[in-house]
Computed example of a mutant assay.
Amino acid sequence: MDQGTERAMQDSNGMDDGWIDPPALSAFAAAYPARAVGLAHRLTNHPLLRLDALAALAGRLPDDHVEHSLGNLAVDQDPDAIARIAAHPADIVRTIADNGCWMVMKKIDCDPAYTALVDTILAQLAPVTLPATGRHQRREAFLFLSAPDAVTPFHMDPEHNILFQIAGTKTMRLYPADDPAIVSAEQHEAFHRGGRHRNMRFDPAFDAQAETFMMAAGDAVYVPVKAPHWVQNGPTPSISLSITWRSDASDRAARLHRVNHRLRTLGVTPSPTGAAPHRDAAKIACHRAVKALSGAARRAVGRRRDRVAY
């Protein structure tokens, strides 16, 4: 168990029931890690999640921790055709009701004011997540602000994720991660190589497999690793908090996809992940060994790797 989770679990012993409702935790335990599920939470009045606090946060985060654009996007938006306004991030937060924007503040867990909140939420989840998928890795938190009717295009993310709706309403349409008609093996493999924009092609035929979550303040949704989704904001400004973590299980899957990608480039058609457990284990072991050697070589010459993907 990481020190942050252990410390927060100790600190949360005196809390009433935590930030996630106990019945929601039971639903989460029944669904995790493979199924999406709607949850309920108690974060809506947290002082760190009010608009003035978020404007202050936007003003002190590093530039590369803030991304924003206009929010009138298509579900299958071309990332090269996304427009932005010229405004300071703090001003975008303050005027989110009228500026037509979408914004994400990334890795807010690195800000000292938010560290304890993220630790406490993850600590409440730990009795479910740690036995099922192993230790929390790359724990991160994101804050999303969206103007009325803004769209977050179709994409998938590499983490386990719980999206907490703090203010406003939105509709999330979520699709299975394991349907090759939606995301092919080649797409999974390319995703873990990094270097591509997160937005993905969308076919309306995918909607036959969609699960729809109507979210208002106090609602949350657990999104499994790489479950594709897109989001339509409601008629009022939206604030959402996303708590994410990777796991031993998601790390193993990512390594398999990277090995399979390499095999495919060599002209070998790899077996699907999960089809041959012993072969999968051998691939993971080889990948770990190669990465350990390459990491040692980089360190020996004083080079650091900027890790964009797994």
Score class of each variant (00 low, 15 high):
residue 241 L to Y: 02
residue 157 D to E: 13
residue 154 F to V: 10
residue 143 L to Y: 01
residue 134 G to H: 07
residue 159 E to A: 13
residue 188 H to N: 15
residue 148 P to S: 02
residue 169 T to M: 02
residue 240 S to G: 07
residue 210 A to R: 00
residue 179 D to K: 03
residue 165 Q to G: 00
residue 165 Q to I: 00
residue 242 S to A: 06
residue 153 P to K: 02
residue 231 V to G: 11
residue 187 Q to E: 15
residue 204 P to Q: 03
residue 194 G to R: 07
residue 216 A to W: 04
residue 190 A to D: 15
residue 237 P to D: 11
residue 154 F to Y: 15
residue 223 V to E: 12
residue 184 S to L: 05
residue 218 G to R: 10
residue 148 P to L: 00
residue 202 F to D: 14
residue 209 Q to F: 08
residue 234 G to A: 07
residue 190 A to V: 03
residue 232 Q to A: 11
residue 191 F to R: 10
residue 176 P to A: 05
residue 205 A to V: 10
residue 167 A to M: 00
residue 191 F to C: 05
residue 147 A to T: 06
residue 230 W to E: 13
residue 185 A to C: 14
residue 237 P to G: 06
residue 227 A to F: 02
residue 221 V to W: 06
residue 151 V to G: 08
residue 181 A to P: 07
residue 143 L to H: 01
residue 210 A to N: 01
residue 213 F to Y: 12
residue 138 R to K: 08
residue 240 S to K: 03
residue 162 I to Q: 10
residue 218 G to S: 12
residue 164 F to V: 00
residue 240 S to M: 05
residue 222 Y to L: 06
residue 194 G to Q: 09
residue 241 L to F: 01
residue 199 N to K: 11
residue 216 A to T: 11
residue 165 Q to C: 00
residue 155 H to L: 03
residue 223 V to D: 14
residue 218 G to P: 12
residue 187 Q to F: 02
residue 208 A to I: 01
residue 196 R to K: 12
residue 193 R to N: 11
residue 152 T to E: 14
residue 172 M to P: 05
residue 175 Y to C: 07
residue 234 G to Q: 10
residue 201 R to A: 13
residue 217 A to F: 06
